[in-house]
């Protein structure tokens, strides 16, 4: 079973909120020094899902890890390689910067075509920084593949993939033909801790780097220029609480005043 897992590098989601501030003018999140970039935890589970599917299928096949991001994103790919993936691909070029889910999906789809369409394409259900959860589905659309999202389990059987999806009121069991796009939820289970030997082998592995030209993409289609989502403002919502005591002589009067206040606030 061949698989391609798409991963994203994000600021460590375990970082306390105090370490971040927002530059509203530049519409940018400013990180305190020391916030380390890590592989998106859902994507790490996507790698785990690929490894488990391959193990259940007899262990043969190639698992590739693909990421769009700057130089540091190599570490996210290496994390996947250390866990047991075989090959790493990185889309790295200044032209990719400032893109949105659409431009990212477009570049990934091109890269997937270049690598060769595998049996399954696996994504995390969403990236834990912006929580959009759309890239997987857009790639499926671009490649014309079926897509099943937010999975808690998946198994290959008779050329099909049987999956269990997490839905609001329970689980949904469905099957899909291959090749297909799967997005993995945290219910899938904890990703494995790599063995030191694998970490060292991964450190030595070469990651193939592609630019837009390698993928036959026009710089205008990608990055900030190709983005379809435009940001208008970025700010931290304020949580404010006001406490007011109602003063009156009797309990009846207090209750009356309270009722009036609540009605005023359109709460009753």
């Amino acid at each position: 079973m061949d698989a391609i897992v798409c991963v994203k590098q994000i600021p460590d989601p375990e970082t306390p909120a105090a370490a971040f501030s927002v530059d509203e003018a530049a519409m940018r999140v400013v990180e305190a020094p020391g916030v380390s970039p890590v592989i998106n935890p859902f994507d790490q589970q996507a790698v785990e899902a690929a490894l488990r599917l391959r193990e259940a299928d007899g262990g043969a096949g190639t698992i590739s890890v693909l990421s769009l991001g700057p130089d540091s994103a190599r570490d996210a790919i290496k994390t996947g390689l250390a866990m047991g993936a075989d090959e790493g691909y990185q889309l790295n070029d200044p032209a990719f910067e400032g893109g949105d889910a659409w431009t990212t999906a477009l570049a990934l789809a091109k890269a997937i075509e270049k690598i060769g369409l595998p049996d399954v394409l696996i994504f995390g259900r969403q990236a834990a920084d912006l929580d959009q959860g759309t890239v997987g589905s857009i790639v499926a659309e671009l490649l014309g593949l079926p897509s099943v999202t937010v999975l808690r389990s998946a198994e290959l059987a008779d050329g099909e993939i049987r999956v269990s999806r997490v839905v609001a009121d329970g689980f949904e069991s469905i099957s899909t033909p291959t090749p297909a796009v799967l997005t993995i939820s945290n219910e899938f289970g904890d990703p494995r801790y790599p063995q030191l030997r694998q970490i060292m082998q991964a450190a030595r592995k070469q990651v193939t780097v592609w630019t837009p030209a390698d993928l036959g993409l026009d710089p205008g289609e990608i990055g900030a220029t190709g983005a379809r989502v435009k940001m208008h403002a970025l700010y931290q919502p304020r949580n404010e609480t006001e406490c007011e005591f109602i003063e009156a002589d009797t309990a009846e009067e207090k209750a009356g005043l309270l009722a009036a206040k609540l009605r005023e606030a359109k709460l009753v």
Partner: peptide, 11 residues
């Protein structure tokens, strides 16, 4: 994160 205290709200 360079420390063992997962989930700490502090820097």
């Amino acid at each position: 994160q360079g420390h063992p205290w997962r989930g700490t709200p502090h820097t």
